[in-house]
Design a protein around this nucleic acid. Sequence first.
DNA 1: TTGTATGCGTTATCAT
DNA 2: ATGATAACGCATACAA
Lengths: 319, 319
Amino acid sequence: MTNIKDLARMAGVSVTTVSRVLNNHPYVSEEKKNAVLEAIRVSNYHQNINAVHLSKGKTQLIGVVLPFSDTPYFALLLKGIAQQALAHNYKLVLFQTDYKNSRELEALQMLKQKQIDSLIICSRASDWSTIEDYLPFGSIVLCEDVKEHQVSSTFVNQYKIFYKALEYLYKKGHKKIGYCIGRKSGTNSQHREFAYRDFHKKYKLSYQPDYIIDECLYFEDGEKVINQLKKMEIPSSALLVTSDQVAAGIVVSCQNQGISIPNQLAIIGFDNEPIAKMMNITTIEIPLLEMGRNLFLQAVDGDLSKKELSYQLIERETV
Amino acid sequence: MTNIKDLARMAGVSVTTVSRVLNNHPYVSEEKKNAVLEAIRVSNYHQNINAVHLSKGKTQLIGVVLPFSDTPYFALLLKGIAQQALAHNYKLVLFQTDYKNSRELEALQMLKQKQIDSLIICSRASDWSTIEDYLPFGSIVLCEDVKEHQVSSTFVNQYKIFYKALEYLYKKGHKKIGYCIGRKSGTNSQHREFAYRDFHKKYKLSYQPDYIIDECLYFEDGEKVINQLKKMEIPSSALLVTSDQVAAGIVVSCQNQGISIPNQLAIIGFDNEPIAKMMNITTIEIPLLEMGRNLFLQAVDGDLSKKELSYQLIERETV
DNA sequence: TTGTATGCGTTATCAT
DNA sequence: ATGATAACGCATACAA
């Protein structure tokens, strides 16, 4: 493996000059430049990027923490991030945490060890104090409303969205509203639960504990939801479903079981995925791609910034 | 940022000793070890991993090249890879190529520059000669039948699978069989096309060019397929669909349009995703998770090995 | 415009 | 069991 020292010898120049032509720096004569280029050609030279990293203290690598990537929500987020990474000549290091805190800590650790320049956490497992411990080592950006915490973030107001959706259902005459969610843990889920409770308080409604159904991530979970619904003493008449995939699964399951939508069961999905359009599912559009893109920008930028993205209720035929 | 030199000074030992305790090497007295540990504690020391990489010439990083990760096929493959990466303490660098050759070259380049130890290419865009150019720099493993080429790979026999599926349909009485595929390019697609042609030759059947429908990647593409089918002069009576997602989309679209399955249209999906089970779609199971896991193992192993995985036709109600 | 010398943080080799 | 010192390959401040 030839290195710049070898190149320097071959071209009859100093290593500095070699480094200059390698990095397109000015102040190098055409003559010497060509000599170096020729040496590079004949030697089949290539940089050892690790040496560059060590020397520069940067890696052009950005870590992305997410529980899994086979669900449209995270897949789209990731896609947005990847788009910008490509455009800005950064590479991505993926941490699929499976909601395991330890994996998130590994990512944080890589930040500390300078293997990645910054970190995008799409779904946080660690508490604030540990996040803040790692802040000195690189920018960390989150995908939730971080309130007063000194971290950059791009997010939608989950509380407001949920509340508005519930009110929409209420105005359509629904008094027994349930919701389906991926996991009960997680800050997003908390915001939603608060919205759910506050809504019921304000409108003086009561709800069954089993109106909240978790572990709803994939299309096929729709079947499970309907089965649970059928077991309820007082089944809910409407469902807020935090993924269009699951919403679609519910619709199909209802067809299979002869449950009429929206008459017997109203449904609002999330994200406005193409599947929602195809199956005519009322949904709440969240600009996930844009969110991903902005997360990346914040990560490389480094400055503290917070950006709330807007959402949109798209009325179709499941409510 | 304190380094091992500082630690050495603080603990009153040499850098070598510090390095020894850092790496759990033998031959260091309990006493000095504790001194170093204490120095580490008070200084809040952490390794600069780039220095380790430079020194060792390894990064514990493995590159994964795939066109996109928001389709179940690649998402599952990636999941399998990620599982093993986790278990073996490797990190993954993701290259979403969007089928752009240049992105794949970037990955190859990273291999050459030692930023990644090896490379898993889930869907190849480059030709063989360029792949082979990079072989000296680390192990490259592929996800296709590489025949005589000196590269490791884990794969299923796409040709045989397709052929068998076509014969199955034929035995069920179908003479006009079409198929839906993600992209026409790619080696997998070629194998399938060969199988398709050979099948028609053997059974002396003819087919329309428009029986081959590409760009079928997502659930919502099912609608497009049905629209195209309806435009055909002689629509096919059966469809091989290389993704259960799309197959499911087709089923839903048929329901919407009053097309009866399997009477008017028979369907075989691919991958045996949960959605196929839920919607009772006949499908061909391909062990994607296992495939991903094995790909990773081959990547870190480094030895040349080739492994063909088996598949299984799962008969349900769409044929 | 060019080169010298030093630093980046760690591991490996070789004495002792 | 311990340590001095040489790699590892590159970037850069500074001098010329």
